[in-house]
Design a protein around this nucleic acid. Sequence first.
DNA 1: TAATTCAAGACTTGAGAAGTCCTGATTTGT
DNA 2: ACAAATCAGGACTTCTCAAGTCTTGAATTA
Lengths: 160, 160
Amino acid sequence: MLRLSKLADYATVLLVHLGRHEGLATAAALAVETGVPEPTVAKLLKGLASNGLVLSHRGARGGYRLSGELEKVTVAAVIAAVDGPIAITACCDGRECEHSSLCGLSGQWDVVNDAILSTLNSITLADMGRHAERLTRRSPASAPVAPVGTEKSSIADAVS
Amino acid sequence: MLRLSKLADYATVLLVHLGRHEGLATAAALAVETGVPEPTVAKLLKGLASNGLVLSHRGARGGYRLSGELEKVTVAAVIAAVDGPIAITACCDGRECEHSSLCGLSGQWDVVNDAILSTLNSITLADMGRHAERLTRRSPASAPVAPVGTEKSSIADAVS
DNA sequence: TAATTCAAGACTTGAGAAGTCCTGATTTGT
DNA sequence: ACAAATCAGGACTTCTCAAGTCTTGAATTA
Ligand code: SF4
Ligand code: SF4
């Protein structure tokens, strides 16, 4: 269904909020602040910490903080950290699928996958945090987020 | 995990194969040809038929055929036909999420979603069928997918 | 030493995808 | 008319994996 996992979504939310904190923020505090259930927040932050996206500090007055700048972290990185490599099909990224011999499309999805990856790599957490503002600037790769509007309608009638 | 459903993947495979047939092709024949289990093929084709992507003909010597040209059908249309509207998060496409009040990113994913949508709209089934050939041509039947020129280079270095 | 907070991983739950099957309608050919 | 082929529609079962919870232990602070 081409849906992002909730966990990856929450992770993005958490990181953006983390970026707005001064010093350290505890998992419990972030849970309250974002509305995401606390055990889930804890789980996510642990994972992000071991992936290096956030730094943790234990003990009283401990907590988490971003390891880098919001501007330097791409959405693709967050998703990859939470859910593993981005691969929309079983045959992407060099993996094998039981049908790869017959289906004839084995390598083609990689192109689509790469295109999506490139899009996700062009959007940073800072972009995500910017409210109501259009993302139409520079960055790791000039974002191809231009004239959207006609697509909407084409999908609209494609969906019965 | 940002994964495409197998059903949508199979549908794409089936449609590309259908496009290579002369007249009608039965569900059973396509099943053999593609390696996808027959009941699944039948289910998928029925769905695609009711969405208008393929035309069906009943009775002896019946079967399915494409309703249009491979060049005119985008990957986005296929996915939408099988899995419903493309929305990577719960808050895309105007829907509501229980956390939308606190999370602060409610509208932002729409931008990402639209970017992905635009990418999927720029790739046709004909492109998927072309082996080993790069998709580096014009925009699709409809979508005005802005500067496709910049993506290309960004893809190169985005692919880890 | 006591309180706080993260680390690590096992565990349970649940939703939804994936796949199967049945009954009926339609078309073709004999 | 009859039988065979083939799709239509939907109910149904199965299974995977995301999602969420919990428990124990280690580090840090005061
Ligand atoms: S495109 Fe073919 S090989 Fe790739 S996942 Fe789909 S069926 Fe498997
Ligand atoms: S971004 Fe916020 S509102 Fe949208 S799905 Fe995620 S949590 Fe819900």
